[in-house]
Amino acid sequence: MRVVVQAAPFDYGAECADFARDRTDMGAVVTFAGIVRGDGGLASMDIEHYPGMTEKALTAIAEEAAQRWSLGDVLVIHRHGPLRPGERIMMVATAAPHRRDAFEAADFLMDYLKSRAPFWKKERGTEGENWVAAKVADEDALTRW
């Protein structure tokens, strides 16, 4: 299991290629990347986080996923700082013997990252700047698990 919080970009292709590459018992790998959308004249998105708690929260979420599903490995990378449209904000990867576990665990990780990891997004664009509000749907999504 690996959890990374960093300002710098990450190499998505290399991360995907390296993930669980030496495992012969993992028949399924699911990878997901979150990307900054350029909707509504967005110029940049600043991601603030809570150093220390962020790493703990992400690790706890990844450990929870590893307990609930049969996983061989989990990777979470999440960036902070200023990002432009098209940049990758974060990624998760899950490896499991069979695909259902890998898909469900990745979905679970994303739902929990949305509302239980201490990140806040501020959008800057043609209409000024504003903090992205949490969506009720994102909170409701947690009840699925």
């Binding site: 708690m53 994303m110 990252l113 949305k114 239980r116 201490p118 509000a133 949490a134």
Partner: peptide
């Protein structure tokens, strides 16, 4: 102390308390 709590959480021995809006990760 870097664990989610609520307004009823006790502060005995707490070293650090943080206040923030609902989180928007991912």
């Amino acid at each position: 102390d870097q664990e989610l709590g609520d307004f009823d959480s006790p502060l005995a021995n707490a070293r650090e308390v943080a206040f923030f809006p609902p989180m928007t990760g991912g």
